[in-house]
């Protein structure tokens, strides 16, 4: 970045001593390298973040910015009494509370399975990983057809074993769980790969020693495998949890938040209040709250990780 003309004389004055001259040169060299990234991060990340915080205290309406004024905590107070917000919060919480353990354990189980030394095991690794290769939009569209109550694959497969038919996305009590199932199906393979790398780092001699001591498979799992991948386990739980709180694409593509708002999520509401209802102030309050939730999750988990690893 070119320094402004006002600053330039100062820079020349500093040239008097060799020491500060070098310091200034190093500073500008450093800024030359880091500058582009710093400027971009400032304009496209820090500034919008600060603006979100600022807007959350105003009644900024997208079409009439000139009428915007400071309203204090009004937007936040409005949140507390907004039943749609409470429902979105609840849906996001349910999704997260189920997906995190379900997906993490599924991934761990898959990793343990494909870590076996069997012929053709590579095929199964690829099979479990396959859904990851598609995008979330693609699988959401695909599963909307699979979940179709009348002409969907899910009901016709389940009817073979005499279960169903279900309404899936059409039923307010099933829609969120249908999305949960699909999300775990799509994402488990990714975490399986991370677990697999961790499992392969556990030295074989630990298992051999345990076998000599007469340990069975279950004991080996509890006393060698799980402690061996503990850090990865916590890391995956954290990443999955933060990703889960961001749930948006699946309900947007599959249900538009319905039926009866049963799949509305926090991020969905940020989007809807901002871009559909154009209520920038209220949407920003939601966005700030969402940021706080993500922040709390990471701080708590990081602290927990540090405490337990000592």
């Amino acid at each position: 970045m070119e320094p402004s003309p006002i600053l330039r004389p100062n820079r020349n004055e500093k040239k008097v001593t060799a020491y500060s001259n070098k310091g200034v040169r190093q500073f500008w060299l450093g800024m030359g390298f880091a500058g582009p990234a710093v400027v971009l991060l400032f304009v496209f990340l820090i500034m919008p973040a600060l603006l979100a915080l600022y807007y959350s205290f105003t009644n900024y309406y997208l079409l009439t910015p000139q009428l915007s004024e400071f309203v204090g905590f009004e937007n936040y107070q409005r949140l507390a009494g907004d039943t749609l917000f409470l429902k979105s919060l609840k849906n996001t919480a349910i999704f997260t509370a189920i997906v995190v353990p379900l997906q993490t354990l599924t991934a761990l189980a898959l990793a343990l399975l494909v870590n076996q030394k069997l012929k053709g095991i590579k095929f199964f690794r690829v099979a479990f990983f396959a859904p990851v290769v598609t995008s979330m939009v693609i699988v959401s569209i695909l599963w909307t057809f699979i979940y179709n109550p009348d002409t969907g694959l899910a009901n016709s497969i389940l009817s073979i074993v005499g279960i169903g038919p279900y309404q899936y996305l059409m039923d307010k009590d099933q829609a969120l769980y249908s999305i949960i199932f699909m999300s775990v199906w799509q994402g488990a393979g990714y975490q399986m790969m991370i677990f697999l790398a961790g499992l392969q780092d556990i030295p074989d001699h630990q298992y051999e020693a345990a076998s000599i001591d007469g340990a069975n498979s279950w004991q080996k799992l509890i006393h060698i495998t799980i402690p061996g991948i503990r850090n990865i386990l916590v890391f995956i739980a954290l990443v999955t949890m933060i990703a889960a709180t961001k749930l948006f694409i699946q309900p947007f593509v599959m249900t538009q938040g319905g039926p009866l708002d049963s799949t509305k999520t926090l991020v969905y509401m940020v989007y809807e209040t901002g871009f559909k209802f154009r209520d920038v102030g209220y949407s920003s309050a939601l966005a700030v709250l969402f940021f706080m939730i993500v922040l709390v999750i990471s701080v708590v988990q990081r602290k927990w990780l540090r405490d337990t690893s000592q």
């Binding site: 979100a52 871009f275 966005a287 969402f290």
Partner: peptide, 11 residues
């Protein structure tokens, strides 16, 4: 730590 979803509208 800043989730993209929370800066969407100002961006």
């Amino acid at each position: 730590i800043i989730p993209f979803e929370s800066i969407l509208l100002p961006l």
